[in-house]
Design a protein around this nucleic acid. Structure first.
Lengths: 214, 214
DNA sequence: CTTACAGTGTAACTTATGTAACACTTAAAG
DNA sequence: CTTTAAGTGTTACATAAGTTACACTGTAAG
């Protein structure tokens, strides 16, 4: 049975009950493709455990990381797609082991009127996703790559709870939509400034990493 | 009385009736500030006439154009802000003379359950705004300024229905979050390639503007 | 052990964009 | 008419980022 303890603070008991009844539990391993560009979305996912990366792809196969979803968060783009029976505009990949519950689209509407906590959750999700996208735009439009890289590493640190980031330069380059050489260059700069130490497939953030002195 | 003819194809008569009763009509002139960053949002606006520009501002007062709203469209960010009683993350300015109807936030919820057409409209709006933001991200992250400028001019052309764009280089630079010199440079290139003709405060798009040959 | 490959370091170069400076023109305001 | 400000054209230069190329090092597979 699915463990919905994370959600019991958010939703009323009767709704949790219904979620147990109608929700579909799903498990993904690190790197698994949860949702792909162009696929129809039939249920709205709520993350119970782990972290999900959400990407945008353009016509030329360029891709860029939009945001992360972690526990009790949900991709509200899925919601509106679902209700409208639209294809997905994004791709989602499991960052680590991920557990999520899928809410069938028939229930989405029903609950909206039936459970105030559901309506509030959905609206809060919409708002949070909008803000994440705006932050993305801000970051790409106004911040240089070095700042974006630092923000990226900090976000990884926050989500994993560890100061050792496991990622190749190539992966980072893809997620920030740039090239490997550029990332290597910037990381080396950070290492020379004693902000980080580089290993193969690993980046260790030093205590001086947090100090904003550039 | 407010003219809701534009909306009668979208909403059922009973809802139009309620809109007349509870909606608040508003008029703005070109350049008027409709919504500012940090202000509380108390009603959800639906554009009836004219075009609204929606901007994002960051901490350092940099701003960038996110998208346009035209007839019968709505900023769904306002919706979720409204329901959640959050402050606005964006700024909205009238591109020309704008007529809009504001729906008080108490009605938003009520109608969601009462009128299917309202729920569908709201969901469609959410989806459209998400897609606009994704297009923005795509544009900024993957396209060079010259392409973005061309897309910008085409959008202006589409919205105004005229091949003569009224805008100073400065304004364009602000909306694309770059500097005037750069825009002047790129526009001059386009003129040299016989794509456009430049006048003071006006840009005339020639027929060859549409041909994709760069 | 040997081979193949992914990951990394680094140099040299190109290009897009940002920035500062200045001249000139047109429109608006006095 | 004179003055001022806004809009534009253009040059010269600085810098961030993209690109190509190649060497080197671990790691995994055979």
């Amino acid at each position: 049975m699915i463990n919905l303890d994370n959600l019991s603070a958010v939703f009323e008991p009767a709704l949790i009950q219904e979620m147990h009844q109608f929700g579909i539990g799903q498990h993904y391993k690190e790197g698994d493709l949860i949702m792909d560009y162009g696929k129809y979305i039939r249920m709205m996912p709520i993350v119970l455990k782990g972290t999900v990366k959400v990407y945008r792809l353009d016509e030329d196969k360029n891709e860029i990381l939009l945001y992360y979803l972690s526990s009790s968060e949900s991709c509200s783009m899925a919601y509106s797609c679902c209700v409208e029976a639209k294809k997905s505009e994004v791709k989602a990949i499991a960052e680590d082991n991920v557990e999520l519950i899928g809410i069938p689209h028939v229930k989405l509407d029903e609950w909206l009127c039936k459970y105030p906590s559901w309506k509030n959750y959905v609206m809060r999700s919409f708002n949070e996703r909008f803000i994440e996208l705006l932050k993305s735009i801000e970051s790409i439009a106004f911040h240089k790559l070095d700042e974006r890289l630092i923000a990226y590493l900090k976000e990884k640190q926050r989500l994993s709870g560890s100061s050792v980031i496991k990622a190749s330069h190539n992966t980072i380059a893809d997620e920030l939509a740039t090239s490997r050489v550029v990332i290597s260059r910037l990381l080396k700069q950070l290492e020379n400034n004693n902000k980080i130490i580089l290993y193969r497939n690993e980046i260790k953030l030093l205590s001086s990493f947090d100090t904003p002195i550039k």
